[in-house]
Computed example of a mutant assay.
Amino acid sequence: MAGRRRASGTRVVVAVCLLLIGLVGCGGRPATDSARAEVQSLLDRRATAVLDRDETAYLRTGARGWFGNLRAMPLADWSYRLTGLRRTGDIAVADAELRYRVRGYDRAPVRAGRTLRLDLDAGGHWYVQSDKPAKGSAEQLWDQGEVAAVRGQDSLVLGVGQSATQLRSYARLADHAVPAVAQAWGTEWARHVVVLVPGSLSDMAGLLGAPESSYRGIAAVTTGETGAPAGAPADRIILNPDAYGVLGDTGKQVVLTHETTHVATRTHTTAATPLWLSEGYADWIGYLGSGRSPSQAAPELRRAVAEGRVPGSLPLDADFGFAGDATELAQAYEGGWMACRMIADRWGEVRLAEFYRAVGGHERRAGAVEGAMKDVLGTSLEDFTAQWREYLRAQLG
């Protein structure tokens, strides 16, 4: 099923330029140490008010803004670190790194770049006029509206513009996905997920800091730092309400289980892991128990095989690009799934998980798949590819 891809890597806020601006005062006078200290103190009070749900204290620091949108979010930590300050008279622009943690889910803080516009009041005290995503930084869910929260057994679903009934249905799907993934992959991961449901495709793109066109027709993505230690911030599964909402019950479950697999395998998914393996393995777990046959789950590849166009090699990373041909994208996902399915059929499900871990354990891409195939599967890439092509003919012909 085309429509799921991991957004790998961490959205890192590059503060070097901002810091230089704060020091040289480009676009305003250089901020004095006292002004920086005053603004940091202001941000500290603002953060404390957010954590304490103290609207009165919050309003003493500036405009109400999105304060009310956070009521339902279970926050464990919230803090700002001032990285730059530019002042022109009684007006200033502060660049800050926001760090926050969702209680019960984030083992380390999520970091986000913010730009705050400040004014001096009549008493000479700074107050916040606005607090928005920094240029180049993604929006946060509360930037888009009031957040509603539904807790499941193994999930937290946060949404904007969604009914409670809809969010509860997503929590049930997530609660089914978590144990299904744990049974196939193992239990050495957090075994809970955070699902974000924005109000529209445009809002989804805002959460990802990317153009809307990049995710049209994509049901969901998972963000997080691949290869990161277990103590890294929790991944976020972000649903596209337009594409995900039109799927049937089975399709919704497959997608959410696929994305949950990315959460579980994150620490073993590295630069050495090709997309055919990471996406194929996520699809393999996603389709377990769905009752979907290869012909049903891989229609584009089935059509190609029927026409005598059996792929000559395993899908390349470039084949998974969203901007390319939709049919080729579907075939890439289907080809990766069939490769993982073949490993499970011929070598066993345990060996498939071992192979995944072995590939990710290499320091670089070159030789990673070949080495893992030799060590875990006892075969070569050339022989594996030949078996995979024959498997496609047998299963889809």
Rank of each mutant, 00 (worst) to 15 (best):
G397M: 05
R81C: 02
F384K: 03
R99E: 15
L381T: 14
G28S: 06
T187M: 03
K252F: 04
T226S: 11
G186F: 07
T165S: 15
R266H: 06
A243Y: 05
L70D: 11
A330P: 01
L19T: 13
V16D: 15
G145I: 09
I91V: 10
T32C: 10
G367F: 00
Y333T: 07
S295L: 12
G308Y: 07
G209D: 14
L377W: 02
W142M: 01
E38C: 06
R64Q: 12
A184F: 06
V310Q: 09
R81H: 14
V128Q: 11
W276A: 00
Y244H: 13
L156F: 05
Q144W: 01
L392H: 01
A282Y: 03
R60T: 08
A210T: 15
G286E: 07
E370C: 01
V193G: 04
A282Q: 07
V195L: 13
R389C: 04
R172Q: 15
R107F: 09
T222R: 03
G159H: 04
Q331W: 10
V195G: 08
E225M: 04
I343T: 11
W142I: 00
G371V: 06
V359W: 02
R117Q: 13
V221P: 07
S79C: 02
Q166F: 03
A180P: 00
T32V: 08
Q296A: 15
E354P: 00
V197F: 07
Y127Q: 08
E307S: 11
L42K: 10
D154I: 00
V13E: 12
Y281R: 01
W126I: 07
V160K: 02
A366C: 03
A339D: 08
T56V: 14
G28N: 10
G291Q: 01
L42R: 06
E38S: 12
V13R: 02
Q166V: 04
A394N: 13
A190G: 09
S8L: 13
R346W: 08
W284G: 00
A149Y: 09
T10P: 01
G312I: 01
A230D: 15
E225G: 12
T270I: 11
K135M: 10
